[in-house]
């Protein structure tokens, strides 16, 4: 082959010696600089695979001499941020929740941190917008109705210990018994009565009968007027908010075969600072209630202190028990 090589007279370039029907191929090698750059990349590649994680093994990969990992880098960054926030985090974990809102910087920090905690841990059930899911019984956290209380301390307690969580003695716990031993008509009448409490359409005659059944069976927890009891976690049946739906059939179903939501305890998993942070975030979503001053302890004062809507007309804003007005206007 090499015998056929010659210098092409037209171009001054050496041929490869290949010839097809007299058509020859010029040998134009890669430019030197290109070739050396290519060799340099090979050398660089070898060095790189020694220094950095590279070769896949059965489980994992070679670690590399420098011990670098992207996870480690992220962790270092998280540690750095944690360190810079350490002082705020510590005061958040120890501050008296009653005065948290007065400390503007700490409160802002808590809400911002809580936003992330909520998105990572709570939004799966309560929704990214915290509006809950009625069909699944995940409570709406935006409204002003709270099963277990809506002050910062109440919310923090719920987050810390969970709901119906048997491993935690302090967990919120309530259990509505099944009333499937009642006659079908009795249950239906009771549902009519419950709907009448909040001014919804109902059969007045049935409701009258249901009132008696309610007083005998339900009032112990939900109260004689159906306003519920937060110490027991018994929902308020006289307002416009229904955890599991307010249709007649929804109420009947809940009486016959009650469903109970469960919330895991987050205290151990998140730590006190993050529990308080997410409590502050949820508290600031529009339904949070003010902490009651020590001397005022009765439930009505608690109600009065809630400020879901400061500029709302007094009559509509305050609770019916104080103004003597009907519970709610009908919602159409």
């Amino acid at each position: 082959m090499s015998d056929d090589r010659r210098i092409d007279t037209e171009t001054g370039t050496e041929t490869t010696g290949h010839s097809w029907d007299g058509i020859e191929e010029l040998n134009t090698p890669l430019p030197r600089w290109w070739l050396w750059t290519f060799y340099a990349t090979i050398v660089w590649g070898v060095i790189y695979t020694i220094l950095f994680p590279a070769w896949p093994l059965l489980s994992g990969a070679t670690a590399g001499l420098l011990g670098y990992s992207t996870r480690g880098e992220v962790q270092a960054e998280i540690d750095r941020v944690d360190l810079s926030n350490a002082k705020l985090t510590e005061s958040l974990a120890t501050v008296d929740l009653g005065v948290l809102e007065a400390n503007e910087d700490l409160h802002r920090f808590a809400i911002q941190a809580g936003r992330s905690v909520f998105a990572a841990n709570c939004s799966q059930c309560h929704g990214a917008g915290a509006a809950g899911v009625v069909a699944s019984g995940y409570p709406n956290l935006l409204d002003d109705d709270w099963l277990w209380g809506g002050t910062l301390e109440d919310i923090a307690h719920t987050v810390r210990h969970g709901i119906r969580n048997e491993e935690d003695a302090e967990a919120r716990f309530s259990m509505m018994p099944s009333f499937d031993w009642l006659e079908r008509e009795e249950i239906s009448a009771t549902a009519d009565y419950v709907r009448s409490l909040s001014g919804l359409d109902h059969d007045a005659e049935a409701a009258q009968a249901g009132a008696r059944i309610f007083a005998d069976n339900c009032a112990a927890c939900h109260g004689g007027d159906g306003r519920g009891d937060r110490t027991l976690g018994a929902p308020n049946l006289a307002d416009a908010i229904w955890l599991r739906g307010g249709l007649h059939e929804d109420i009947v179903r809940q009486m016959r075969a009650p469903r109970h939501g469960v919330m895991p305890p987050w205290g151990d998993r998140l730590g006190e600072a993050e529990v308080r942070a997410v409590a502050a975030y949820v508290h600031g979503l529009g339904g949070g209630e003010r902490q009651v001053a020590e001397e005022v302890t009765d439930a009505q004062a608690t109600e009065a202190a809630t400020v879901p809507d400061a500029s709302f007309p007094a009559g509509a804003e305050e609770t019916p028990s104080q103004t003597g007005e009907p519970d709610v206007q009908p919602v159409e």
């Binding site: 917008g129 409204d143 002003d144 909040s198 416009a240 809507d309 919602v331």
Partner: peptide, 14 residues
């Protein structure tokens, strides 16, 4: 927009 409105306990819409 998430959610577009909230019903409050007194039936008002926020």
């Amino acid at each position: 927009r998430n959610p577009t409105f909230v019903t409050l306990s007194d039936g008002s819409t926020r």
